[in-house]
Amino acid sequence: MTIARFWRETPQRYNLGGAKCTVCQTVYFPPRSVCPSCAQHRQSIGKLEPFHLSGEGEVVTFSVVHDAAEGFEMQVPYVLAIVRTREGPQLTGQVVDVDPKEVKIGLKVRATFRKLREEGKAGVIHYGYKFAPAEDWDGRPPGRGMPAHVPSELPTRPAEGSARA
């Protein structure tokens, strides 16, 4: 994947930036420009506003992956999960900092900012969200575990001439 292609989604992958429909109040991740929930889709155009997810949620289902996706070979076996966030949207990510045998449907988790994968030895390193167990998220202010700002040392924009096909 080119740097530009990954960099484009930085606000979502780094900060869980989603969108909220101001017509019907439904929250989306990743952000959308048209709301599928509004009976009249056209009403929602231009009425979706940025909305940050807290990063807190529950495991809906999971798998322990042994045959890795490309770029994830060094991480096997890893736990892949679908997480339902407190705000509603579901997303796919790894569950880390836990013995895979301890992962269960319903496990409470919180998003954490990690290295996702590397593209070969000299390739780009991709960062984004993973999830870690967080049995204590109830009542906490949203947003814990995710950086408020993208750390400056991370590749947030493509360097000159470094984009690869």
Binding site: S63, L80, I105, L116
Partner: peptide, 21 residues
Amino acid sequence: HEWEAVFGATLPGLWAMIARR
């Protein structure tokens, strides 16, 4: 690709999550 594979999902991984549920 952008919201599944990039986070480590494979086709068998996705169907495995359907199986688990």
